[in-house]
Each structure stands twice: as C-alpha cells, then as structure tokens.
Computed example of a mutant assay.
Amino acid sequence: MTQFERLTIDDIARLAKVSRTTASMVLNGYAERYRISAATVERVLQVAKDHHFTPSQSARALRTRRSNTIGLVIPDLTNSAHAALAQAMEWQCRERYQYQLVLVTSDENPVRETEGIAHLVSHQVDGLIVVPCTGDAKRYEKWMKRLPLVFADRRVEESSIPYVVTDAVETVATLVGESIARGAREVVYLGGQPELSASRDRLAGYRQALRQHGLEERPDWVFERDYQRESGYELMKSWFAEHQRYPQALFAGSITLLEGVLQFMNDAHQLAQAPGQLMTFDDHKLLDCLPFKIDAIIQDSAQLAEHSLRCVFSLLEGDGEPDSRLVPARIRYRRSGG
C-alpha cells in the first residue's frame, strides 16, 4: 500500500462542507458565473490550499478538449544544443502561451521515439514538436490525424509536416571556407547519421566550401556515424592511428562529436597536440577555457523554439497550414583576428 495520499475533489468538498458540484465550480473558476458566495469560495480555496490540491488536468481535458500541454520529443538532454532548445521552448510555452511543456527523449532510437510520441498522445497533449531521429516519413505521418505536429531542428524529406530548422548550409560553407582561405589544404569532416537532414545540410555546406575554394575532397576526409560522443572519440582515434598526426583542419558536425574528439586528444596527448584549425557546429562556454581556439556555429535556440511553437498553435487554432522556416545561425570566432 502506498504511503501517499491522493486527494480528489470529493475530499475537498467534504472538508469544505460543500457539494462536489460547488467545489468543482470554485476550483475551476466558475464561481462568479454560478453566483457562489464569497464566503463559500474562500472556504473551498483555503481547504484546497491547505492540502496542496489542484484540479485534475485529465478531467479538465475531457471537459474542454484541451490539456494546455505541448509535447516535445528530443534525442537526448546531454547534447547541449538540444538542452538549449528544450529550455527555450519550455520558457516560451509557459510565459507566452500559458501552456506546460512535457518532454520525452528518444536516444536517437526510432522505436523509443515512437513509444515516446505514443505516450505523449495518450496523455492528451494538444500539440507535438519532434526532433526526428529518422528520415522515414511514414513513422510520423500517422500522428498528423491525431494532433498538430511540427518538426524542429531537423526536417524529414517527402513529408508534409512543417518544420523549423537552422539554415546550416551557408553558415558551414562560410566557416569552412574561411579555414581554407587561411591556408588549410586538408579539412576533415566528422558528421552524424547521413539520413538526417541536419547531417546532409552540414555536409553540403562543407562540400560547398571545398568547391568554392578549388579544393578536391579526398577519400579520408569525410566520416559519418552518429552524433554520440563515443563516435567522435573513435573517429578521431582511427584517423590519428592511420596518419600518426592530427589533420590541418577539422570540422565536427556537432558539439557532442567535438566532445569525443577532445576526449581523445586529452587521453592521447593531454591536449598538447591538436588540429591546426578546429571548428564545430554548436557551441559551449567551456570552449572558452581550452588551450586552443575553436570557432563554433551557434544555432538560435530562441528562434527555433518561437517559430516551432507558432506553427503548432497555428495548426491548433485552425489558422491554415503554417510555412516551414529556416532560422539563420551565426559564427562565434575565437581565433585571433576573427
């Protein structure tokens, strides 16, 4: 038997010595409409306060067909970029829309992602924002009949679901191109799952920079696995083992991959050796504390969150199909003279 006491509205009514209907009207904000006396309202509210009681959201959702919650599915919270997106979305959801954000993680696992979406839908969230971990449109299309659904940070090709993503191609091309312009003739790229739109966009920006500066891609320059820290470590370890040195320039497709690269550099050489130029997609304040400079592309989490929520509420209110959007990114230069 549980040691915790779960109060119901019947308990509040009994303690306040009123009917269940009266207690329900007071707690759900209908006292004035039904002309319930101020003394009764005060007594019911005081009992509820004394017992830390709030009305059931599930019951309210059944009455109003709204739960005042939005679901968010992200790959993981250890990725600082995803954590920043969740933080921005939670704040805006609460402050701008008076909604609560309910979050689940997929661990970049399609099965777990589907289970997470099903869990949120079963709890009657009013809308859903997903950072998809696959490029399989069919996995997501079936939910569109149930509730408003928007992709954030990543899009899914051949899907009609609206998306809000970072405009990565030109920003990556600019950053990598500047590295080449400074003299790099060997630029290694470490990326995530090639089926993800974010991976394709970042790789497209990298290759655009090579073309624009007349640099031919070599077979040992581009490596893609996933966005896990362990993959960054293993890819850097493998490249160093083959070449017995670090590349002239290195672009990490995510902060998590960079973390793995830095871990290898620390384990192997206590950070005393490094690529001639280091670049990453996504930023972290700890990069300011390293003994070498790392230029980073910063996504605008606030704008990603704002436009994603705007899309969801547009669908929820029946304002028509919202337009997908590309959100600009910016570069944080740490190198001297950047």
Rank of each mutant, 00 (worst) to 15 (best):
R335T: 15
L278P: 00
V312T: 08
H82T: 05
A38N: 12
G253V: 06
F313M: 12
R245W: 04
Q273Y: 12
A59K: 10
P110Q: 03
V26P: 02
D226M: 07
A61H: 09
L7I: 10
P247S: 04
T105R: 00
S159Q: 09
A23L: 03
K237Q: 15
Y99W: 07
V44K: 00
I255T: 09
L250V: 13
D10T: 15
L149P: 01
E115C: 09
I12T: 09
M236W: 02
K49V: 02
S80K: 09
H52L: 14
F281K: 00
E90G: 03
Q263P: 07
V73T: 06
R139W: 01
E195A: 04
L45R: 15
T64P: 06
D288R: 11
K237M: 13
E178H: 10
R43G: 09
A84D: 14
V156M: 10
T2C: 07
A168I: 05
R6W: 02
E90Q: 12
V47C: 05
L309V: 05
R66Y: 04
A86D: 11
L250Y: 14
P194W: 12
A168P: 06
Y246W: 08
P219C: 02
D76L: 00
N79E: 07
P219N: 04
N266G: 07
P132T: 01
I12N: 07
D153T: 05
K293D: 14
I297R: 01
A83H: 03
H119T: 10
A302P: 00
A16E: 10
F151A: 04
V73R: 08
F4R: 12
D288V: 01
G29H: 15
A48W: 01
Y189E: 03
G214N: 12
Q277A: 13
M144G: 03
G276K: 07
Q303W: 11
W91C: 12
R94D: 08
E195H: 13
A88P: 02
L120F: 04
G320H: 04
V47M: 00
G191C: 13
V130S: 10
G205Y: 01
F4M: 08
R330L: 07
D282C: 10
E259W: 08
C93F: 13
D167G: 11
E115A: 09
L62Y: 08
V165D: 12
H307A: 14
K237D: 11
H269Y: 03
I294D: 03
F313R: 13
A137Q: 11
I12S: 04
Q273M: 13
V41Y: 04
D10H: 09
S254N: 13
L215N: 06
R334G: 02
G71E: 12
K142D: 06
Y227S: 13
A181H: 08
V111R: 09
D136F: 03
L103G: 01
R207F: 05
K142E: 06
M89L: 12
D136E: 15
P148F: 01
L250K: 02
Q193F: 06
Y140H: 09
L271I: 14
R66W: 07
Q212H: 12
C311T: 01
V18R: 08
R66D: 03
F251A: 06
R200D: 01
